[in-house]
Design a binder for these strands. Structure first.
Lengths: 204, 204
DNA sequence: ACCTGAACACCGTTCAAGT
DNA sequence: ACCTGAACACCGTTCAAGT
């Protein structure tokens, strides 16, 4: 057993988040438990509850890391370069969608934990968690600039509509809640969404 | 304790589903447990495992009832009457989205259990469960007829894109994963989706 | 001050033994 | 044949007692 002062409070927190994220990665959210985390970091559950509020608090911290990881993944793959490239507006958006779908596929368990875990709707979302979500939308909104005007409010709304729609298609498909037949693919669906939604925007 | 032959296998199944759905309705999926269900129907867990395969199997049966309930809700509210009414194509779709959002709000716990519960992606979805999903899409596709042509494959895909997108907006918003500011509302987002997507479809 | 260890009230799942 | 009851290996959460 670890002796006191072996690690700071922050170190224990970081170790727990890393071990917990690993558990989810390997076996999904149902494979996660505070007791397994405690075992994995060499402390007892009591210590874990000294550092975290409760079960939800740990999962929220793990999901926040996944959100950061997703943003880093998108920044790395989409970078700033096609800002100056010759990619069309449509291709930029399709690339964004494809990137999200790839991340969800490659990190299925961590990605699905993002949505299998919900606080009761009255419970306030911690501000630090909301900031991770906002950071993601900031990135998306920036790439939408060429498509929407520079009307702030409209860019915000358009980014949210497109992103939520892409997520909906991705989520229902990957979780087998939307059976695809014949030539249908996730990318085919998101392409249809983007092509027609953007055509609609531009025709106004 | 209930004596043998008090209820048929099918009766026990139906009782368990009803009690289990009630548990979810009251306290969400985390408030559900096989042991509570057993207590509620007056049998022991052993009997429950005689009738159901496992935990997932019970939840799947409960969710199937929710899918039926959702379809009945939409049929009742949207009926067949605006088929002959003067509602525009856009209004029909907006009504469909509004109906889904209302159901999700009014039945939040049962609705969110639909998506908090996932089988491992390799596990095959039971056919009887797939049928409930298909029945839902059948209803949606029928109302899309005026908007899309009568190309079967295209109607299928369009229905899936629109429905999944509406679901994505609804899901992220109701679970606090998409913060709305100012004048934004769920309905505002789905309206934007529908208006622009349909305008795009018609401009081709 | 920090951490343990045990306790409490739960879980899902299995299966020998009763009727 | 059907159901029970107990067992097994787990959970989240709390907190007195140790160092």
């Amino acid at each position: 057993m670890a002796r006191r002062s072996d690690h700071t409070r922050e170190e224990i927190k970081a170790m727990a988040i890393a071990v917990g994220r690993n558990l989810i990665q390997e076996n999904g959210l149902p494979g996660f438990s505070a007791r397994k985390v405690a075992l994995g970091i060499g402390y007892t559950v009591g210590t874990l509850y000294n550092v975290f509020e409760n079960h939800d608090d740990i999962v929220l911290h793990i999901n926040a890391v996944t959100l950061e990881d997703l943003l880093a993944y998108m920044e790395k793959r989409l970078g700033d370069d096609d800002q100056e490239s010759h990619a069309s507006d449509l291709d930029v958006l399709k690339g964004l969608a494809a990137c999200y779908i790839d991340y969800a596929r490659e990190n299925y368990n961590c990605w699905s934990a993002l949505f299998e875990h919900n606080l009761s709707p009255e419970a306030p979302l911690p501000v630090w968690y909301g900031e991770r979500i906002d950071a993601l939308f900031g990135f998306i909104e920036a790439r939408l600039k060429p498509v929407v005007g520079k009307d702030e409010a409209e860019a915000r709304q358009t980014a949210r509509v497109l992103w939520a729609s892409i997520h909906g298609i991705c989520a229902l498909t990957l979780t087998n809640k939307l059976t695809l037949v014949g030539v249908e693919t996730v990318e085919g669906l998101t392409d249809s969404l983007i092509e027609n939604y953007v055509a609609g925007l531009k025709s106004r």
